[in-house]
Design a protein around this nucleic acid. Structure first.
Lengths: 135, 135
DNA sequence: TATTAACCTATTGACAAAGTAGGTAATTAA
DNA sequence: TTAATTACCTACTTTGTCAATAGGTTAATA
């Protein structure tokens, strides 16, 4: 299940995509609009900056800004970078230790198929799609 | 993410579907074959019995047995009954309290679409499909 | 120099996941 | 009738993550 981290991250990115581009938006504005605690948002924005999805600027007139146009972000990218993984089962997660039953596991094909489906779905949707109501 | 509860439940159901029908299989056998602790399996089997997916019989010659033919169980049913829900986000889970942002949430359509996709996928696969390698 | 606003480290409380422990009740075979 | 078998039941523990809070530091601007 997608946690608040990923869900809030997506909402923040959408929020920023809806603001006039090329200028910084303070955290406080985003937090107020989205109804999310400022302190908690900080943590999420920090991740998004580390992953180069956003850039930040300190001091007066500072805030946060997208680093690319909205059509160049996918929902999959945002979710995977904030959640760590979007795999449905642990054995398919990033950096999972190899499962001993791998060769004989009858459920593995099922999880693999679902995993592919999930990735195709979320990586096929851009921020622009969401903002423009094409989803 | 699907927890061990749901994943083990699915494996147990598959295991039973692979045994000769019409006779009880002791928990110990299942646990040994699947490499799952007996005590933990008990908890999972208890749920499966409450939900009528299995029946149990005590005493010598007792054990667990499917209540229907394998083609009449879906993966979705097994996962949803053991996990509680297979929704990707809390606001779509079973018995979720209504979200205040529901009307204006741009991410809701995304989650809803993924939720539909997920349900279609798992409810479209039967135990028989899995056992017969059709997945 | 005061204000704004991002950045940083640490801590907390609540909860669930995953599993353990030890006993009780029912069924069958000797 | 007794012993063996096996499901069933209640309670506990351990570990970890989620979600958030608290309080301070650095950088940029007016």
């Amino acid at each position: 299940m997608i946690s608040t981290k990923g869900r809030y991250a997506l909402r923040v990115m959408i929020d920023l995509a809806q603001q006039p581009g090329g200028q910084f938006v303070p955290l406080e504005e985003i937090a107020n609009r989205q109804g999310i605690s400022k302190k908690y948002l900080e943590i999420i924005l920090k991740i998004l900056i580390e992953k180069k999805l956003l850039k930040g600027q300190r001091g007066k007139g500072g805030g946060y800004m997208l680093t690319r146009p909205p059509e160049e972000y996918t929902a999959g990218e945002i979710l995977e970078l904030t959640e760590g993984t979007i795999a449905a089962v642990a054995c398919l997660g990033k950096g999972a230790e190899p499962c001993a039953r791998k060769g004989s596991c009858l459920t593995l094909p099922l999880w693999k198929k679902y995993d592919d489906l999930t990735h195709e779905f979320f990586y096929g949707i851009t921020l622009a799609d969401i903002v423009n109501g094409n989803v």
